[in-house]
Design a protein around this nucleic acid. Sequence first.
DNA 1: GAACCGATTTCCT
DNA 2: GGAAATCGGTTCT
Length: 237
Amino acid sequence: MTDRPFPRDLLRRDAPEAAGNLLGARLIRGRGPSARVGRIVEVEAYAGQEDLASHARFGPTTRNRVMFGSPGLAYVYLVYGMYSCLNVVTGEPGRAGALLVRAVEPLAGVEAMREARLAWLERPRANESDPRGGFGAERISRARRRIESLPESDMAAGPGLVCAAFSIGRGDDSVDLCDPGSDLRLETGPGDDDPAVETGPRVGIGYAPEPWLSRPWRYWLKGGAAVSKPPRSHGGT
DNA sequence: GAACCGATTTCCT
DNA sequence: GGAAATCGGTTCT
């Protein structure tokens, strides 16, 4: 594997300014032949406390505390009761900021990612004694078949899917992604040429007022097959 | 302590 | 186009 630790200094600025630095970086889980490696192709920037779309808008809390910490740390939270989302903290300590990793293009360990997606399906449920057991089993079985034939580019094409494919959960909250010794970490890509970056409004923040709602703080690498498809409920025709 | 809701994904009609 | 799944945080009583 390459072995180029991601320079923390590239994250010492407000999230929208650091976004371009994170695009193209490698996200890595594990080491050796079983390592899972992917290229970050889509991110969303969440700025300081003034950004009313950000979890930081209420100030430091138990959940978002790491957003106010050092750049390069992982901020992992649970959305909709089931999906984890991975963020890379940006900015100097004391100033909140983070980049949400929305999509990753698999480069190595794709089958391990597929296994992780399958394992996520069978994740332990809190209410196991729920009477609707049979229904859930059939639904899971159909989802399993779908994942078994899923194209590589769709393996981590969405924030919840990135975490499922890389086995990321709340246990990874506050992990230092710039530390080469971390099991979950970042590395720089190979001397990437000047990549073409496109931008657009952030997804899933309908609760936010203007101007935050329309800030073009979603960034993706042009032509990336793994770029996430925004949920229909949020936009597309 | 209870009500409300989300930085999502998937399936159904 | 509509809604379910599923639960910890945040906010209110």
